[in-house]
Computed example of a mutant assay.
Amino acid sequence: MADHTVEVTIVTPDGSVYDRDDATMVIVKTGGGEMGILASHQPFVATLEIDAVRIQTGDKEDQVAVCGGFIEFSGNLATIVADSAETSKEIDIERAQNAKSRAEEHIKHAHEVHDADELSRAEVALKRAVNRLNISGK
């Protein structure tokens, strides 16, 4: 690995989802906001939001949908441990659209019956589905 690149590894409880050793920049959404990481960045650990992890290599950008987890960066190695993660190629668009529709129905129902717990769960499910659809390009 060259001194001006970052190695990126994304893992979930089910195993490795993404591995690349020539990224020029990694962009993540942490609990504190969006963060761009270049080679030789100060070491840190941060929680991740439901959002895209964007990995840039020259003119190309890969995107991985992550749902929670954390990132650790040290020694030009970005390790992302996510609750779940999918590359754009792995996303089942029909399944994500169905999940979005179900979440919207649950949100409507939660408002009707004034159920804060159901509303909270449905809002998270909607964020996950929308994130997956955004990554897939649909």
Results as ranks from 00 to 15, higher is better:
residue 35 M to S: 11
residue 2 A to T: 08
residue 72 E to R: 03
residue 23 A to H: 07
residue 59 D to C: 10
residue 109 H to D: 11
residue 13 P to R: 02
residue 126 L to Y: 12
residue 34 E to S: 14
residue 81 V to R: 00
residue 96 A to P: 02
residue 62 D to H: 07
residue 127 K to L: 13
residue 82 A to L: 06
residue 51 D to R: 05
residue 129 A to W: 08
residue 62 D to A: 11
residue 86 E to H: 01
residue 101 S to P: 00
residue 84 S to C: 01
residue 14 D to H: 06
residue 40 S to I: 11
residue 121 R to F: 13
residue 123 E to W: 04
residue 78 A to M: 05
residue 67 C to S: 13
residue 60 K to N: 14
residue 51 D to K: 05
residue 59 D to M: 12
residue 63 Q to V: 15
residue 18 Y to N: 06
residue 58 G to F: 03
residue 9 T to G: 04
residue 85 A to Q: 01
residue 58 G to S: 10
residue 32 G to H: 12
residue 41 H to V: 13
residue 116 A to H: 08
residue 41 H to P: 14
residue 65 A to N: 03
residue 61 E to L: 11
residue 109 H to F: 08
residue 29 K to E: 11
residue 129 A to C: 08
residue 60 K to S: 14
residue 30 T to I: 08
residue 114 H to T: 04
residue 107 I to C: 06
residue 11 V to M: 04
residue 96 A to G: 02
residue 96 A to N: 00
residue 46 A to P: 12
residue 65 A to S: 13
residue 97 Q to M: 03
residue 13 P to K: 02
residue 30 T to N: 03
residue 83 D to Y: 01
residue 16 S to P: 02
residue 20 R to K: 10
residue 91 I to T: 00
residue 117 D to Y: 10
residue 116 A to F: 07
residue 74 S to D: 11
residue 67 C to A: 13
residue 13 P to F: 03
residue 38 L to C: 14
residue 46 A to D: 14
residue 107 I to F: 07
residue 77 L to I: 08
residue 82 A to H: 02
residue 130 V to I: 15
residue 93 I to W: 00
residue 79 T to Y: 05
residue 29 K to S: 14
residue 121 R to V: 14
residue 88 S to L: 00
residue 33 G to N: 10
residue 90 E to M: 03
residue 20 R to D: 11
residue 49 E to A: 15
residue 108 K to V: 11
residue 72 E to N: 02
residue 42 Q to L: 15
residue 77 L to G: 00
residue 137 G to C: 05
residue 86 E to I: 00
residue 43 P to I: 15
residue 17 V to G: 02
residue 73 F to E: 02
residue 86 E to Q: 06
residue 73 F to G: 00
residue 85 A to E: 01
residue 69 G to D: 06
residue 127 K to S: 13
residue 33 G to H: 12
residue 33 G to W: 09
residue 66 V to I: 15
residue 21 D to E: 11
residue 77 L to P: 00
residue 19 D to A: 15
residue 41 H to E: 15
residue 132 R to L: 12
residue 7 E to K: 12
residue 3 D to H: 09
residue 75 G to T: 05
residue 100 K to E: 12
residue 3 D to Q: 09
residue 43 P to H: 14
residue 38 L to P: 07
residue 82 A to M: 04
residue 114 H to V: 10
residue 69 G to Q: 04
residue 9 T to P: 00
residue 7 E to C: 06
residue 101 S to N: 07
residue 133 L to K: 05
residue 48 L to I: 02
residue 19 D to I: 10
residue 19 D to H: 13
residue 37 I to T: 12
residue 7 E to S: 12
residue 91 I to L: 00
residue 38 L to Y: 15
residue 75 G to Y: 01
residue 89 K to A: 12
residue 49 E to T: 09
residue 44 F to N: 14
residue 19 D to C: 10
residue 105 E to A: 13
residue 89 K to L: 04
residue 108 K to M: 09
residue 108 K to H: 11
residue 138 K to C: 04
residue 12 T to Q: 03
residue 15 G to M: 07
residue 92 D to A: 01
residue 32 G to C: 08
residue 132 R to P: 02
residue 54 R to Y: 07
residue 124 V to W: 05
residue 72 E to W: 01
residue 62 D to M: 09
residue 16 S to R: 13
residue 22 D to M: 10
residue 24 T to S: 15
residue 80 I to D: 00
residue 114 H to M: 07
residue 129 A to G: 09
residue 73 F to C: 04
residue 41 H to N: 13
residue 121 R to Y: 12
residue 28 V to D: 05
residue 81 V to K: 01
residue 11 V to T: 13
residue 125 A to W: 05
residue 8 V to F: 03
